[in-house]
């Protein structure tokens, strides 16, 4: 028997014991939790209880050593939507106009109008322009209009510090990792969609094939291997910035330090971790 076989055999024999310990742990947790249920409503404890499961077994990766964050420079975005398509391809997101882990909004102020006209790539007119729900583009509807001001705003999960989605998950299937990412355990999610309701940003979508909720993971499978999220990787104009805030020289640390950044809907108390430059008062 090779060393590898021995290891596999040992792991297999550990399984019943591990399950037993898990059940024991669950029992203890239930009892403890029932006793202290009343006091758990305090907001400070929300994060305490949203404890992450054991760290993922990723070679050469320690999630205690990173603190990921994301930046959007809306002044750079050209609305090419490569990010949206890259995200769908990378993460196997449903190929239709109603399920996105990231999307881009277009804000157009016409002369004489107070409010912007807003649309995203899933707008029926834009879908008609692209001719498919698998490819995305913004149509040219403002070609002859007198545009006063216009810009694009990429959106994605904000991986909040106090995520409302994690707070409301009845099973703990969605959780906050130590390195600052909000993930979903697809094997544990019951598909109640309470988290979809709770997210103020509309960042969560439902995977009808698996019967579970899905969302942006900042391409956790890539960033833990030293790669960039797919949307950042493909952005031709560097409108998307990603990095480790623990490293003061990382692109995101520099972006936050050198710009006056804003976050979306700070009044929710969710403390988002996607930082924006160049957005307007009507962006929410």
């Amino acid at each position: 028997m090779s060393n590898q076989d021995t290891k596999v055999g040992k792991e297999a024999s550990d399984l019943p014991r591990r399950n037993f310990l898990r059940i024991l742990g669950i029992g203890a947790a239930c009892t403890g939790a029932m006793v202290s249920a009343g006091s758990l409503i305090a907001k400070e404890q929300v994060n305490e209880s949203a404890t992450a499961p054991p760290p993922p077994k990723i070679p050469n990766y320690d999630w205690n050593k990173h603190k990921w964050a994301f930046g959007i420079d809306a002044t750079r975005c050209i609305g090419c939507l490569r990010c949206v398509e890259a995200c769908k391809a990378e993460n196997g997101v449903a190929q239709d106009a109603h399920h996105f882990r990231t999307w881009v909004e277009r804000y157009v102020y016409l002369e004489g109008e107070d409010k912007p006209r807003i649309d995203s790539q899933s707008d029926p007119q834009n879908i008609a322009a692209s001719g498919s729900e698998k490819e995305f583009r913004f149509d040219n509807r403002y070609k002859d209009a007198k545009v006063e001001k216009a810009f694009f705003v990429p959106k994605l999960c904000n991986h909040c510090t106090h995520p409302a989605c994690v707070q409301v998950c009845p099973t703990g299937a969605t959780y906050k990792t130590k390195d600052g990412v909000v993930l979903i355990d697809h094997s544990y999610c019951i598909g109640c969609e309470y988290c979809v309701q709770a997210c103020p940003y509309g960042a969560r979508e439902f995977n009808h094939v698996l019967g579970v909720t899905d969302k942006c993971t900042w391409c956790y499978h890539r960033i833990t291997k030293g790669l960039l999220p797919a949307c950042v990787e493909v952005c031709p104009v560097e409108a998307r910035i990603f990095g480790d805030r623990n490293d003061p020289q990382s692109p995101i640390s520099l972006f936050i330090r050198n710009n006056r950044v804003a976050v979306l809907k700070p009044e929710t108390g969710n403390a988002p971790n996607v930082y924006y430059v160049g957005i307007d008062k009507d962006v929410s």
């Binding site: 669950i26 939790a33 249920a37 404890q45 209880s49 009845p170």
Partner: peptide, 17 residues
């Protein structure tokens, strides 16, 4: 979406929910 897992919420309730 996964009714067969409904007991996850009973066995391992996430009390902030």
């Amino acid at each position: 979406g996964n009714p067969q897992r409904a007991f996850n919420a009973v066995l391992t309730p996430h009390w902030t929910s």
